[in-house]
Amino acid sequence: MAKVRSPNRDKALDTWLEHKGKISNRELASLLGEKEKTISNWKCRDQWNVVLQTGKRSTTNKSESKGGAPKGNKNAKGNRGGAAPTRNTNAVSHGFFKRIFPDDEETLHIVKEIETKSPLDLLWENIVIQYTAIIRAQKIMFVQNQQDETRVLKKQKQGDDLWEEEWEYQHSWDKQANFLQAQARALSTLTSMIKQYEEMCRQGWANEEQQLRIQKLKTEVNKLNEESNPDPVIFKDDLHE
């Protein structure tokens, strides 16, 4: 059975448009008796910001309210019902991803996940991945002291009467310099993604919980930068909040 579209979904958009986007998700949820998270999901899926800018509403999911396909639709003609055949290309939009990605269950699962996520969710996941990589690098690239030298065997050669070996030496100051450069680039990328996330929050993409988690991460990033940079503050606006 098709999921029935909630009448509050359209009411929420109408109310939000009446306020020209100046009403919070929490206020809308209270007015309509819905959860704040539900309002946030509707806002992302129905692209309220696009509707506000263009005046055109998305036709996505309109058939939900009728409990089936639009009148005159022949897509299901001759279909006996039941689940789609195994490996059905419908699992991937227009078969596009299936043509360019490996044909395995894990890849198809990732594609299906992407289709249900909002742009804000996708951005947050990339922020988490980037931040995790930076934290892991603290241990992987750690330089203990000035005597922390690494010797790597590059080449071995055996002659008639001798054995040759070529070694590469990585001194502590070289390793530390490489680490600082890599960390600076990674932090710059992370900072850019966080600022993009905040801009989407200001445009109404995020609920209160999503806004709080980015503020918490900004604090963590500033602390991380304090440990390796004499001029520690990345997000200077935090000082005035």
Rank of each mutant, 00 (worst) to 15 (best):
W124R: 05
I39Q: 01
K154M: 15
Q183H: 08
F101D: 02
H94N: 14
E115G: 04
H19R: 15
Q158M: 14
G159S: 06
K223M: 13
R151D: 04
T107C: 06
R185K: 14
K3T: 13
E27K: 15
K3G: 04
K74F: 01
E27Y: 01
K71V: 11
S188I: 02
P85W: 00
S228I: 14
T219L: 06
T150M: 11
A133S: 13
K98P: 00
K56A: 05
F97K: 00
V4H: 06
E106R: 14
N49A: 10
C201Q: 05
D237Q: 08
N207Q: 03
P232N: 01
H109Q: 11
Y197T: 00
R57V: 00
V128N: 03
E208L: 06
E64D: 14
L31T: 08
E226W: 08
K56N: 07
E105A: 15
N88C: 14
I234T: 00
G55Q: 02
S63P: 00
T189P: 01
C201T: 07
G78I: 00
K112D: 13
I234F: 01
M193F: 08
D104P: 02
Q47E: 15
Q211V: 07
L224G: 06
C44K: 04
D161H: 14
E105Q: 09
L17V: 09
E18W: 07
E165Y: 10
L162T: 04
P7V: 04
F101H: 05
K139F: 12
T38C: 06
K11L: 11
D10I: 10
A184K: 13
W167L: 08
F101S: 06
A29T: 05
N61H: 13
L187Q: 04
T132N: 12
K20F: 09
E36F: 03
L217A: 01
Q53T: 08
